[in-house]
Design a binder for these strands. Structure first.
Length: 593
DNA sequence: GCCGTTTTCGGCCCGACTGTTTTCAGTCG
């Protein structure tokens, strides 16, 4: 069983116990352990064998025994008995908006509903309105919730969400009385995928802002409306939530709405230990006296520690680190000086080499690697050895036109074949400045096979970077079933860099493994895999993954000064000339016009 | 069910909003 499967099992147990009516703190314990398992960077089977289960946060005696039973037998008697008590299909009801464990239990016990279809039938037949605590409005809400479930899109990509959010924020900032409007929630924490869009605003006239919000022309349905909080649904099925407070309360509001929920719980616990109570409105002392904060910095300072960057607010140790004065120095977008993975019209890109070079220079980069696809499976107009040789001349020509303003690296994104061999022969790879090796096909090989395949590439001395290591596609296609412990250990041993692919559909290496890699001292390359000028802009999403992985600029190859980057490449077989003049001119954040 | 420089037992974040209710339960973030 994998960490994810184990987490799913405990999540299921938590839901069933909730419906059964178990005390919430017990179900909370199962939920917490599920979440912790999802982000635990080591294979739980290894942890189990080494008798270290207690190292997983939230694992105590009872859950430790359940993990043991699950890993040894693949089954769990406790869950089997639970399933006999509470139908498993009841869990589906919890997806319906406004249906939680108590309503699910009510519909089941008093209306005989055990699944979504039966809930729909019962609601249409008007059988729900008669139940205790229900009425016509509640029944109607269930029905529209069921409809919404049908058109609800999956979690949205971060790269899709941000442009929409920016448009709404621009609109909000133009509304009368709005002094400030910002993104919050998982969007502001830059999670890879986003559920609803959360926005916050500061205004002395919240009611007017709310009124404008729910009457925005794109609103299809108003899900809730109040003085401080409203939520709407667009015709696309996307939900937006807006919180509004007066400016002097904006700090506590923004902390609250940014979350994560677990982070909020953690800092509120700390407030409690100081005899204080923290909410989105204010910090309240024992006498009920409010203190208001207009900035997040002041809220955190009042709790006794420095401001925590939103990307870290996941209750993964950031509060403890902040208290100890040990928050990491995080990578910034402005630290990025090179693009090490880009395509051109030579393979499946839509821009010429020169066009990409000019765009990269325009972003202030000192180095651009042209890494078109290799041949192999006939994908993406991949380059034969012959065309690869011709491309070298074309890159040289573009370099001459660009002068010393940016260094072009003659590279490749070469295919790792199904047997782990590299598409180009060693003598061809040796001629290149930079070699990215990527998995593109046969991603469904069994774990042992695909891990060995990737390790073979990792240990090829000509390979500098492993591109999008897992091959996952968000939000649905899982990556390869890799033995990450072995992959990371192999990368550490060989000195190869792992890519954090910044394409919003990839964001691969995942933040969990990126954090582990950084801890192990493995170097990473954040790269957009750009196929056009526009996609060079995706760099910010890759940087966000690194930040969520607690990475500083030291771990990131393309945040290094050009001299250091070239030094690293040279050790790995860089065949190009030195980067003349660039190193002396290379100052951080300098844009070349 | 977990957890502990205020606890090995008694806690476990906090408030907005909705609908069904005459004071509250449920859901949500």
């Amino acid at each position: 069983m994998t960490n994810q499967e184990l987490a799913d099992t405990f999540e299921r147990i938590a839901n069933l116990l909730d419906i059964k009516g178990e005390i919430v703190y017990k179900t909370l314990a199962y939920r917490r352990v599920a979440e912790n398992l999802r982000v635990f960077p080591e294979d739980i089977n290894t942890v189990f064998k080494e008798n270290r289960l207690a190292e997983v946060p939230g694992v105590g005696k009872a859950i430790s025994e359940k993990i043991t039973e699950l890993l040894e037998t693949g089954q769990l008697g406790f869950l089997e008995r639970l399933k006999e008590e509470v139908p498993l299909s009841l869990i589906d009801l919890l997806q319906v908006p406004d249906v939680g464990p108590r309503k699910a239990a009510l519909f089941w016990k008093q209306a005989g509903v055990t699944n979504l279809a039966e809930l729909d039938t019962a609601a249409r037949a008007g059988k729900l309105r008669a139940l205790p605590g229900m009425g016509e409005k509640s029944e109607a809400r269930i029905l529209s919730g069921l409809e919404a479930l049908g058109r609800r899109s999956k979690r949205m990509l971060l790269g899709t969400a941000w442009p929409i959010a920016r448009r709404w924020l621009d609109w909000l900032r133009q509304q009368p009385g709005v002094q400030r409007a910002e993104a919050a929630g998982s969007l502001r924490r830059w999670r890879s995928t986003i559920g609803d869009l959360d926005l916050v605003a500061a205004s002395d006239h919240p009611a007017e802002v709310m009124d404008a919000f729910i009457h925005h022309p794109e609103v299809m349905r108003v899900l809730g409306q109040g003085e401080n909080k409203s939520s709407i649904e667009l015709s696309s099925g996307l939900k937006l939530q807006l919180w509004v407070q007066p400016p002097q309360r904006f700090g506590t509001l923004w902390v609250y709405a940014t979350g994560s929920k677990d982070h909020n719980v953690r800092i509120r616990e700390l407030a409690q230990k100081k005899g204080l109570s923290l909410s989105e409105q204010a910090l309240v002392d024992g006498q009920g006296e409010e203190t208001l904060y207009d900035s997040e910095e002041k809220v955190y300072a009042a709790l006794g520690f420095p401001w925590i960057p939103p990307e870290l607010r996941e209750d993964r140790g950031e509060v403890q680190a902040a208290k100890a004065g040990q928050l990491p120095e995080l990578l910034e977008l402005s630290d990025i000086r090179a693009e090490l993975h880009a395509h051109s019209t030579w393979s499946d890109g839509v821009e010429t080499i020169e066009g990409m070079a000019q765009a990269a220079r325009g972003r202030g980069y000192k180095v651009l690697a042209i890494t078109d696809h290799s041949g192999g499976l006939g994908i993406a107009n991949g380059l034969s050895v012959e065309r690869l040789c011709q491309q070298k001349d074309a890159i040289q020509l573009a370099q001459e036109k660009m002068g010393d303003s940016i260094r072009l690296l003659n590279g490749t994104e070469v295919d790792i074949m199904a047997d782990g061999s590299i598409y180009y022969p060693d003598e061809v790879l040796a001629e290149l400045d930079i070699v990215i090796a990527s998995l593109h096909a046969s991603l469904r090989q069994p774990r042992q096979v695909i891990t060995a395949r990737l390790l073979k590439a990792i240990h090829n001395p000509h390979v500098d970077i492993i591109g999008h290591p897992s091959g996952r596609l968000l939000p649905d296609r899982e990556g390869a079933d890799l033995d990450w412990e072995a992959v990371l250990a192999g990368a550490k041993e060989s000195g190869v860099a792992l890519e954090i692919n910044a394409d919003p559909v990839r964001l691969d290496l995942d933040e969990v493994y990126a954090r582990r890699a950084a801890e192990m001292g493995i170097v990473m390359s954040i790269a957009t895999d750009a196929h056009s000028i526009e996609s060079l802009e995706h760099m910010e999403y890759g940087v966000a993954v690194a930040r969520r992985a607690w990475c500083g600029p030291g771990s990131v190859l393309n945040a290094w000064p050009a001299e250091k980057l070239v030094g690293w490449l040279k050790k790995r077989g860089y065949s190009g000339e030195d980067i003349r003049n660039l190193t002396t001119k290379d100052t951080k954040n300098t844009k070349i016009s």
